[in-house]
Design a protein around this nucleic acid. Sequence first.
DNA 1: CAGGATCCATTACGATACTG
DNA 2: CAGTATCGTAATGGATCCTG
Lengths: 112, 112
Amino acid sequence: MYYLNGKKYKCSVSITMDIFNDRWKLAVIWYLLEKDKRFKELSEDINEISQKTLTLKLKELEEKNIIKREVFAEVPPKVVYSLTPIGLKLKFVLKEMFNWGIEYAKENGKIF
Amino acid sequence: MYYLNGKKYKCSVSITMDIFNDRWKLAVIWYLLEKDKRFKELSEDINEISQKTLTLKLKELEEKNIIKREVFAEVPPKVVYSLTPIGLKLKFVLKEMFNWGIEYAKENGKIF
DNA sequence: CAGGATCCATTACGATACTG
DNA sequence: CAGTATCGTAATGGATCCTG
């Protein structure tokens, strides 16, 4: 039994599902696995996302201690996002999602 | 490059994210990994989900060839859902989500 | 550059009642 | 039992404009 932010979870998998229950958070993690990124870089990586939504998702991930936000006192401003240790461990999840995507495409799509 | 259902994907991970971009599909898979299930069993497993949404998600998963729906001509009706071979392979993803949830709870929650 | 503030459209989801 | 149908709400996300 787990207790987290005022919620109870019977199983640890529910915790993960509960955090990543939207379209974008895992995508952000995916691109942060490449390297630390600035706001604009992320926004170009995930080019379907709006600024507003990206801002929101970054804030949520920071609150949940999954990414870190660093502000550099420069002009123009520079803000760098990176994965925390626990955030970095999501690479195992994403690796399996990557693998499964390939398998799924083999059966149901075209690869070229 | 992948081509699937009229959409292009640069990376296989996007395929997976695109399918499981809602709150419930992965939960359905999770409970089907235990064993084949009837509609009512799933609805009791995931007790926060409404009938309507469960129906919808099962339909979507069936269309995507991830689960199989079998109807038995009985009274009262019996419908059994099971994972297809590709659906079964999601266990690797879910296992990593399970593991990550534990790690996350260790740092950010209470376990008891 | 890195957002904040508004306004608006979509859709996801839930509650309830009903059916073969 | 396994859904459908309908209605209503809440959450999500997008477009645009603005600022330190």
